[in-house]
Design a protein around this nucleic acid. Structure first.
Lengths: 194, 194, 194, 194
DNA sequence: TATGAATGAGGATTCATTCAT
DNA sequence: GATGAATGAATCCTCATTCAT
């Protein structure tokens, strides 16, 4: 996963804007965040925002689009590398929890924005949900997974991960999620198994 | 579960406001919804909103508070009535899917608010998540459920349900979720089981 | 000519906005006038402007459109009533100078805005220039006027009147233009005559 | 008349700025034109504008001041050279129409600025209107012209010319105005004559 | 010297809320 | 009680101007 900070080496202000925006969007929502807020938090003038983004919406959208795309590619490749279904499941969960723990604001933003931004995407856009769907469908084909609509298994997988992250944010869970990877893998394996 | 429409028998305009507001809040978020929107959609004047709610925030809050409470009570009692863990799990899932299919906007508002409006409402409410936590904890005590932090099992349960509803909203799943209750119960049973 | 003040009897704030806007537009131009200026001068809140006009542009346009239309109708009918070409010419000039002296801001606004607003009109829109063109064309048909492109005679007529008004505004001419009607009629009669 | 392009031989960017600015000022007014517009149209950076002009206002002012002065001197000298009143009138009209057809934007800017930007520039400039005033006054003194306030005759002269140019811009007149010089001279001679 | 990114004051417009009818 | 016009603070965005490179 390429993180905000590495996006550009020469440009110093773009990542500052993005970091500030992500933080604020997570904290107060996109509509609840003002351009003045973003400017203040990023240490940049309001006007400067508009050299980099057409509008606040555009900033929100790019933040989502770029990072969902990066993350999904990373996720898909790590799943692909794993040798069998259970390892693939493990890779999926690991990748998510690592991303969450390393870039919590950003990952949270992706979760929260999904509902809002996803409508604007071409439906061909690669998204972690698709990776989950492919994973479950492949598991079914190999005979490991419970039959039926793969959307159900994929929803259980994705929903569980998201909810675990939310629990972590709300401090219902107060330890690093990465230490629960095996545990969670085992549980979801139990859920998907034939 | 007491639904919006039954809340008041004499007052005819209050439920109209609430229905419109819920719909709009789900669609565009609280900050993204204007009082003008609500007035227009409910067929009521903007001024009239303030006869019933102190502010827009107050409307959003009451909408959440009242219904999440009602629903949680209903959920808890239906789970309590079930005789053993698996039936309790089944009752939990059934109650959620029924609520979702009958009052989709309202249920979506209740479950999405927690994700999307992260810190808007205090987490002190009696919430379906608490019922799930109790359910898993009890399952562990009875020796049926996998040990460990019950927050993990509860997150898997709640997250899966939410995600299935979202899939239904996005039409990834295009049939009534109530017909999947047994299926989903079986899967989550697999996830939680020792 | 229907003047701003008579436009609406019940509504008290619309004419206040229009009067203030006309004054300011003439003084500082449309782009040079802020909505704050208009609000302050009309004694109305900035927000209230938007109940009556979609935008500042819309206000400018309506101000132009409504009054050009009213004035043109008045002008055309007074010209039509006059019995022969010279009397028609006299009627044209009188009507213009009367409008200018009675509602100087408004008339000046119409002159100044022509260039800006006229492009947005359907070319079928009735305009004082058309009345002048018809007048000259009719004069040519009757054999009284110099032949050739009637646009030339019409330009001389309209241009002379506008310039006289501008001279009055600049105080190059510092007496009521109505007292020059006969004089100017005589001159323009000399210009148009065969 | 010295035209923009000849103003500076060494500097290549100054005339580019001036041409672009004149064009835009005529099209959208001074307030309606942004420095970004000027930079884009002239192919020069925004920053570079400020090497040549103190401000946008300064640019507009110089554009007007320099050229109105040059043009007025040229106009005055060509009128002075003509031997009698009618030839002077002819020279005035010819000079204007030539300037218009050769440098339409610039001439339009000079003549429209006075109407559209009513009080922007001080009226102390040597201006074509003054030449017209002198011409009519001289005609009256020589006994050729109708008596009375010479401002009236001058307004008719200048207003007619301006309006003919505007008609040409709006394509109400769609042929070169220079071919109408004799015609227009004849008409205005009719207007001014005793 | 020329560039164009950055600034931040200021502009048009919106919106939650109030209040006269 | 209900309405919807009015308010004015707050929002997003633009633009003349500056300045580091």
């Amino acid at each position: 996963m390429h993180f905000i900070v590495e996006k550009s080496k020469t440009n110093t202000i773009l990542p500052k804007i993005m970091r500030a925006a992500v933080r604020l969007f997570v904290e107060k929502g996109i509509d609840g965040t003002t351009t003045k807020d973003i400017a203040a938090k990023s240490g940049v003038s309001e006007g400067a925002l508009y050299r980099h983004f057409k509008s606040k919406e555009d900033l929100a959208y790019h933040l989502f689009a770029v990072h969902v795309n990066d993350f999904t590619l990373d996720l898909a490749s790590r799943v692909a590398e794993a040798k069998d279904f259970k390892h693939k499941l493990h890779a999926y969960i690991t990748t998510c929890f690592e991303a969450f723990e390393k870039e919590r604001d950003l990952f949270t933003y992706l979760i929260l924005s999904e509902h809002r931004e996803l409508d604007r995407f071409p439906s061909t856009f690669k998204h972690p949900g698709h990776v989950a769907l492919d994973l479950v469908a492949a598991g079914q084909k190999s005979g490991r997974c419970r039959a039926g609509d793969p959307a159900i298994g994929a929803s259980i997988l994705v929903g569980s991960i998201i909810r675990l992250c939310i629990a972590r944010i709300h401090k219902t869970i107060d330890y690093d999620l990465r230490q629960e990877v095996d545990n969670v893998t085992e549980s979801l394996w139990g859920a998907l198994l034939k």
